[in-house]
């Protein structure tokens, strides 16, 4: 079973994502509440894929992508963006993120993005 690390500063969004991901035989290896937490948990858990929120306290999602890619150039990170954040998503993809999904989440789209990212 592939391991997922969910990164979002709200429990609500983490729960929603976990609910979607669990339908696809994915193991929620852990959850992180900000960028700093994400970097630490990535190193500790070595997940197969990370879902990464962008706007978060302390260290934002883009900075976290940069740090994680530095640590593991093969990291597979899926950005979770709100509407209107095109520019930020592009920045994240330049930093190494593989794909993105947009909130409000569409479960089929999320699962498709996860599949696609895992196959990269």
């Amino acid at each position: 079973m592939k391991k997922v690390l969910i990164v979002d500063d709200t429990k609500f969004m983490r729960n929603i994502l976990a609910g979607i991901l669990k339908k696809k035989d994915l193991e929620i290896a852990g959850e992180a509440v900000n960028g700093r937490d994400a970097i630490e948990k990535y190193k500790e858990l070595r997940p197969d894929i990370v879902t990464m929120d962008i706007i978060m306290p302390e260290i934002d999602g883009i900075q976290a992508v940069k740090e994680i890619m530095k640590f593991d150039p093969n990291a597979k990170i899926l950005m979770c963006s709100a509407m209107g954040q095109q520019a930020l998503v592009i920045e994240a993809i330049q930093a190494g993120a593989k794909d993105f999904v947009i909130k409000p989440f569409q479960p089929t789209r999320v699962l498709e993005a996860v599949d696609r990212t895992l196959q990269e």
Binding site: N15, G19, I102, P104, F105, Q106
Partner: peptide
């Protein structure tokens, strides 16, 4: 396209299971 996506996302989808 933007308007459509919001409508599409609001469709009722099967329930998801939460961790807590």
């Amino acid at each position: 396209g933007d308007k459509e996506i919001i409508a599409a996302e609001n469709e009722k989808k099967p329930s998801a299971i939460s961790q807590s």
